[in-house]
Amino acid sequence: MGYDNMNKKTIALIMSVIVLWQLIALLMNMKTLPSPVSVAGRTVELIYPKPLLLLHVAESTKRLIIGYLIALVLGLSVGIISGLEGNLKKIINPLMGFMISIPTIAWVPLLLILVGLGDKTIILAIFLGGFFPIAYNMQRGMEIVNLDLIRAAKIMGLKDIKCILHVYIPASMPSVITGARLGIGYSWRALVGAEMLAATEHGIGFMIYASRAFQDVPAMFLGLIVIGVLSYVTDKILITSVENKTIKKWGMVTQHG
């Protein structure tokens, strides 16, 4: 019942924001603030007859998935390995502290020289954005696993990979989720930035950037809304559902950091 109520409230809020926006837009010119109606009109134009918008979204999604998945797999692996090996951690930790301080976008000019315009540069930027927070948090999670949990597992004869899979990873799940969530945020930022600087024809960042040349403000608004919705979807559907199925269910608390 509370849930229904909240949905109703949210819908009412969205409706009132749109109405308010329309009213304010009527008082201003198109370049400053396009009305919701004109943004909706532009949306239709961008879907029919040629589904350009969908192409942009599909292209960005594809890049995000590839870059983020690589970041996730490598980030978790590096985090686990350096979390287990104290000596390795001493070397990796400062390097990671340094790398994490580099704004992801700063890699793009370098990648443009090394790899050139296009998909590869964008995907690499997405990877670089996501990798460091994921690896850093995974390692931190390994550090704070309760040693008694490991001892209890070892005394029952659990070894190596099994111990990692059945004890270390579930026990550091709050940090894994924090890292995954931060990582997808960083990947998103990298995606949009890199698409503006390095995309050749498609992608939601490219769409916003290219719209500037035509002073196409409704398309820019549309782009921002699409990014907002996609970020919401990736976070809520992907990360929150994993969170609900794991740490929430197990009564563990999310680590902030």
């Binding site: 930022r189 950037y209 782009g223 970020s231």
Partner: peptide
């Protein structure tokens, strides 16, 4: 969650 840079073209126009 909207990346800062996504606003840039809009502000350039404005």
């Amino acid at each position: 969650p909207i990346p800062g840079i996504a606003w840039a073209p809009l502000f350039i126009t404005w």
